[in-house]
Design a protein around this nucleic acid. Structure first.
Lengths: 257, 257
DNA sequence: GTTGGACTCTCCCACTGTGGGAGCCTCCAT
DNA sequence: ATGGAGGCTCCCACAGTGGGAGAGTCCAAC
């Protein structure tokens, strides 16, 4: 064999990777040793493979997944762009989570006051869309924009409707009370009756904190929540600071018979 | 059995959790069903367990680990504080990683120019400390502060010394050339000889990008890097914007015989 | 030439949290 | 009585790394 060949341990020290990692990368086809002894299975690397090895280490050190690294190594120049986008979205989500945790730590676990109110049926103009769980915020904003464009200055408060199961693809809707049909929207009637209601104060992306408490209240009392979760946007999000935004969260209770 | 008891599927829908999750939480002891039929193994939950279940779901939705949730449920009020600190550190690390990835995407993979230079031996004053891999930045800054406090205004450039193996606990050192012993520092002599050298331009926490390229260059040519990695801080970090900071990275080559 | 210690091999298991699926059993309404 | 929905347990998968067992290999010192 060539004299320059390095056994795996020496190569690992050279590249600042662990032996385990190198074997794993070999197995995945990311970095195949220049030569493998057919009798003993010993892996031997050429020194100039250190560049590829260290590229792997570099990208791993910034959390690029091995599959993406594989694409980079095989010349897919666009692979890192996708990683960038995913990292950015992940980062934003983690920042939201961190803010929510900070809030819990400062305000304690949410135990807001739940009241039962009787709501009239409401004739509304509806704008709907489909969203994935992580895009609820964006999609809802878009619906609001479309609704406002169709209705003009609304006379009542905007009401959002969200299904209780947020784990998969879901339909969101934004409505406003109206007395006549509005072009560009669908007419609908929100059922009246008894609702459990709670007030959320804070950023919209922390609504789940309060909504969980509302649903817990409902479940605790043995009610079965019916229909979508209703969010009544009381504050003007343009003029109100994030942590003063007021939203009423309501869920219909089954009719007592 | 009690009439209010819910089988797992119904309870799961109520709490917006999956059946799999509930079984898992049962197994971990986080949320034990109120009653388990000894014959069939069927789990039955009380409606008021929904509060605990939804608390789990809420904390999971903001990435709190199940073990920490367990501590919260058993009344450990300090558990979330630890989670907060870990999340904050993790967030900072991810932000750095994201910045590094952005840099790679805009500047391409680092392939800086490596030169071989002959360095004289240098008599230096040294301040050392031990750091874990994620605290290198902080610990190094502290060493710099101690060194500057001991030396006053240095006549030469600060030089950092870092072992090549960054995967475990490691010793960092900061030095400055001096002609006499300085109280509060240790005297040492940096060996002279041939060094591979490369210039890094950018934030200190992106030094690994360039260092990897340097080590790859060394490895490619079959050299064995010797001794610690040397970082010569050319710019004044106080007056220079982050992405204009200039640092020379140097690694000693074994002497040609 | 032999011996011993460092090195390497392949497998298996662990972590975290969730989902999918197989194979079987149970509940409840028709 | 029967069928379908829903429950049970147990196994495997993901991603990436580390740890360890048990066996084989390399190389330098004697």
């Amino acid at each position: 064999m060539n004299e320059g060949h390095l056994p795996i341990g020496r190569f690992a020290r050279l590249c600042r990777l662990s032996v385990k990692q190198l074997r794993h990368y070999d197995e995945l086809g990311l970095l195949t040793p220049d030569h493998v002894d057919p009798d003993t299975g010993y892996r031997y690397y050429r020194p100039d493979q250190a560049r590829a090895a260290m590229l792997i280490g570099l990208l791993r050190s910034i959390d690029v997944p091995l599959t993406s690294i594989g694409r980079v190594l095989s010349g897919d120049t666009g692979a890192l762009g996708g990683v960038r986008d995913r990292m950015e979205a992940d980062l934003a989500r983690r920042e939201r989570n961190f803010a929510a945790l900070e809030r819990i730590l400062s305000d304690g676990l949410p135990r807001p006051e739940v009241t039962v109110v009787r709501e009239p049926a409401r004739r509304v103009a509806v704008v709907r869309d489909i969203a994935t769980p992580d895009r609820i915020g964006v999609v809802t904003s878009a619906c609001v924009a479309r609704l406002l464009a169709a209705v003009g200055t609304p006379k009542g408060l905007l009401i959002g409707l969200f299904p209780l199961d947020l784990t998969r693809e879901l339909a969101v809707a934004v409505t406003v009370e109206t007395s006549e049909d509005v072009p560009g929207t669908s007419p609908d009637v929100l059922p009246g009756g008894l609702y459990a209601s709670v007030t959320h104060v804070g950023p919209y992306d922390q609504i789940p904190l309060t909504a969980h408490a509302l649903l817990a209240w409902v479940g605790e009392r043995g009610h079965t929540p019916e229909g979508p979760l209703r969010e009544v946007y009381v504050s003007n999000p343009v003029t109100t600071p994030q942590n003063r935004l007021v939203t009423h969260l309501m869920i219909k209770l089954e009719d007592p018979e």
